[in-house]
Simulated scan of single mutants.
Amino acid sequence: MRFSSLFRKGLLASVCAAVSLSSASAASLKIGYSDWPGWVAWQVAIDKGWLKEAQVDADFQWFDYSASLDAFAAHKLDAVMATNGDALVTGANGHKGEMILVTDYSDGNDMVVAQPGIKDMQGLKGKSVAVEEGLVDHLLLLKGLEKSGMSEKDVKLVNTKTNETPQVLASGQVAAIAAWQPNSGQALHAVPGARPVFTSHEVPGLIYDTIAVDPQSLHDNHDQWQRLVGVWDRVVTYIQDPKTQPDALRIMAARTGVTPEAYKRFLKGTHLLSLADGKGVFVKKEGLGSLYGSTEISDAFNVQQGVYKSPQNIDSYIDPSFTASVK
């Protein structure tokens, strides 16, 4: 799913930045997407030909998530599918993307999974928890502790790569792990009796998933980006309509290499947002109900964890005009 990384710098990035001056305005929009239901959803529009119908010349390129962020940071993509917190990280490391569409928020796929016998977050007090420090589920863990009247000082963090957390939980080395799907699901399967004691369902809006676009490409290809945003409601409707959902699941599952039945479980932990929903999220206010408020929380977390040094200008990362313009 998602991964906040400190991106590579140096000669290669400089060369790619120079190349981007000529490539950013290319007719085809180069968009990086990866294995998260709100982003895999675009496969429906691709396979159904809806983008071409809307006269959108888009080249969707499939990546592991962290690799897509690296490619965007190196100016190899016009846009990347990213969480709102990770969009800040790319900007702090040299390539700002403007979020023009919110596809969804995590609604249970991000979890704190505990060993059998531990029934709630308070059961973790004084125990070890494996999490990849500085990443989005570290923030989820902190929110879970906060809601249970505890803090990070009440547990012992074991810095662990997210894709290794299922094995670490199964080894018995820790009392719990914090991870996203499919890793969280793998942990539940690997340890019979393990259970989620806190999930993103309890903090809706903590993790928004977005399309972040290079500002130059937005300027040069404004009409195409507007038309692409306009396709989104058709995608959401096709996925949510009981009559067409089986076909949508077939398409999404084929893209990720799992069964439609398995992918349906992932979809349940993702709250897709229609454009009408998105217009509400783009209203500037405090709190998790707003992309602005949520991103401020991610920004404070990133600074606290040393992902970057200074708070970012949140407004400069958010452009509500594309979503607002769709009638």
Rank of each mutant, 00 (worst) to 15 (best):
M1L: 11
S5M: 11
L6Q: 15
R8I: 07
L12M: 00
V15S: 07
C16I: 02
S20D: 15
S23I: 04
S23K: 13
A24I: 02
K30P: 10
G32A: 06
W36M: 08
G38T: 08
V40Q: 01
A45E: 02
A54Q: 08
A54G: 06
Q61W: 01
W62D: 13
W62Q: 10
D64N: 07
A74I: 04
K76D: 13
D78W: 01
V80R: 08
M81H: 12
N84K: 02
L88E: 12
T90D: 06
N93R: 15
G94A: 15
G97K: 12
G97D: 14
E98Y: 04
M99D: 14
I100D: 09
N109C: 09
A114Y: 14
K125P: 01
V131M: 10
L139G: 08
K147Q: 14
K147R: 13
K147A: 13
S151P: 10
E152C: 05
K153Q: 09
D154N: 03
V158D: 11
N159P: 06
T162V: 04
E164C: 03
A170Y: 03
Q173N: 09
Q173D: 10
A175V: 03
A179F: 04
W180L: 06
P182W: 09
S184M: 01
G185W: 00
A187M: 00
A190T: 11
P192H: 03
G193Y: 09
G193P: 07
F198M: 05
S200W: 08
G205T: 05
D209S: 12
P215W: 03
N221E: 11
W225P: 14
Q226W: 00
R227T: 00
R227H: 00
V229Q: 12
G230Y: 01
W232P: 09
I239L: 14
P242E: 05
K243A: 15
Q245N: 13
P246M: 10
D247T: 14
L249Y: 11
I251C: 02
A254D: 15
A254E: 15
A254Y: 07
L267H: 06
L272K: 05
S274M: 07
S274V: 10
A276G: 02
G278A: 14
G280T: 08
G280Y: 02
V283P: 09
E286N: 04
S290T: 03
T295Y: 05
I297Y: 01
A300L: 09
N302T: 03
G306M: 04
V307Y: 07
V307G: 06
Y308S: 06
K309M: 06
Y317G: 03
T323F: 03
